[in-house]
Design a binder for these strands. Sequence first.
DNA 1: ACATTTTTTGCAACTTTATTGCATCTTATT
DNA 2: AATAAGATGCAATAAAGTTGCAAAAAATGT
Lengths: 138, 138
Amino acid sequence: MLTIEQILKQHNLRVTQIRLEVLSYFQSNKNALTHAVLETHFAKKFDRVTIYRTLTSFLENGLLHKIPDDSGATKYALCHHEGNVHTHDDHHVHFKCKKCDKIECLYNLEIPKLHLPKKYKMENANLLIEGICAACNN
Amino acid sequence: MLTIEQILKQHNLRVTQIRLEVLSYFQSNKNALTHAVLETHFAKKFDRVTIYRTLTSFLENGLLHKIPDDSGATKYALCHHEGNVHTHDDHHVHFKCKKCDKIECLYNLEIPKLHLPKKYKMENANLLIEGICAACNN
DNA sequence: ACATTTTTTGCAACTTTATTGCATCTTATT
DNA sequence: AATAAGATGCAATAAAGTTGCAAAAAATGT
């Protein structure tokens, strides 16, 4: 098991306080997060802009991915790597709960293959399922 | 074939100038549109806020749907109804071209069934495929 | 350990995207 | 033509995201 510091280094990111804490927060949280959530969570500890830049650096270095969504605020979630650090499987399913509004990645579910109309070339796919999540379905 | 006016009435919307023109613009355009695009297209003809409210009323009355996306600006596209005006099949595929950045609905493609983990209840699904569209693939 | 280089951070200002309140005007109805 | 319900434009505000720049912190070389 890698430490948070090692993960940052593996992704060519300098180790700074905000990066340690943001990454750690993502790890302790199975759902996708927005900038607004991080800003609230880290209250006055880090600057808004620095949080934006932390998210951007994580995106660029393959630690996070964006989740397409129609809420207006960008959702970020941790990437899962199997073995190779520098590849990320973009082909998994995201689940958005209509009750609690949380988004999570369903890493185990594969997006089924489907064949596109002529001349369309697929590079990646993103399936967003809406419904009621396990936690809310009681 | 229904006139634009008839379509508005069928969806319980009053017939106004902006609604006629916005709906007509969506019909003449096979791609998804953003508020910004409409604002530019209608220049000083209609107020920004009125355009937002037009989009909202179309969403609420089932004429348009939002397309989940990670661009930051909400994308809207026409709903397709088969027979019943008041149902909309949310289960189709959206295609976003990495070259021209346009989003279109692939109405003919069905999202394959897939089975979720225990206790998850699916209500609708939205598949966004990225790649190169037919127009750009030449 | 110290100086140097490179990158990151915080602050201020700004842009873009979207929403709300309210008076006025338009549509549909009688 | 009068009325009621709903839509529009304008101003203000909120929310989401970006840019420039000087100061601070990390990594690098000696």
